[in-house]
């Protein structure tokens, strides 16, 4: 299972991106995207923004769950009060459906299972907390790129902890 996480600003501008792999079930935390997929990921993620903009007015929830799917890529969304979008693209190692039902409850095998939804929610919530801390800096203006290595480390830690 590989993940690509990005924070998108109000002008559809990327503020932060991070790529990682699963740390559950013996995963080493490294992403397994091919070089080509890396470029494609950015496209897939940004193309889901249209759906986010529709979905954001139907529910006041911050976490919108899996909102888009492109072949074997699942995109989950979390939207902050300030209209900043957190998008997480997940790519299961083996396409969903080809795995046996026995391990379909694991987070890695089925991105739409309740367990996976809960894990992603926890991940987003932790990132949100750190994001709010980042914007509390008086030198940070909304829609600025987040460059802090501490923030990056915090996101990485959240990824290891939940996904």
């Amino acid at each position: 299972m590989s993940y690509y996480f990005a924070i998108i600003g109000t002008q559809d501008n990327p503020l932060f991106e991070y790529e990682f792999g699963t740390s559950k079930q013996g995963g080493d935390g490294q992403s397994r995207f091919s070089e080509q997929a890396r470029h494609l990921n950015q496209f897939i993620l940004h193309s889901s923004l249209d759906i986010v903009e529709e979905a954001q007015w139907t529910s006041g929830q911050l976490y919108l769950k899996v909102i888009d799917k492109f072949f074997n890529n699942y995109i989950s969304c979390f939207i902050t009060a300030g209209n900043i979008k957190f998008l997480l693209l997940q790519q299961p190692t083996t396409p969903v459906g080809s795995t046996s039902t026995r391990n379909s409850t694991s987070i890695g095998a089925n991105p739409t299972s309740p367990q996976a939804e809960e894990a992603i929610k926890n991940f987003f919530t932790e990132v949100y907390e750190n994001y709010v801390k980042a914007i509390m800096s008086p030198f940070y203006k909304v829609n600025m790129e987040i460059k802090s290595p501490v923030f990056r480390a915090r996101v990485a830690a959240a990824g290891r902890k939940y996904l």
Binding site: G60, L62, T80, A81, G82, Y128, E129
Partner: peptide, 21 residues
């Protein structure tokens, strides 16, 4: 104001954390 919005929302109890629609 821009920053206060997110700060005050995160201070809400998790159940009532909703964006104003």
């Amino acid at each position: 104001g821009l920053k206060l919005l997110d700060l005050l929302l995160i201070r809400e109890p998790p159940r009532s954390q909703t964006r104003p629609l």
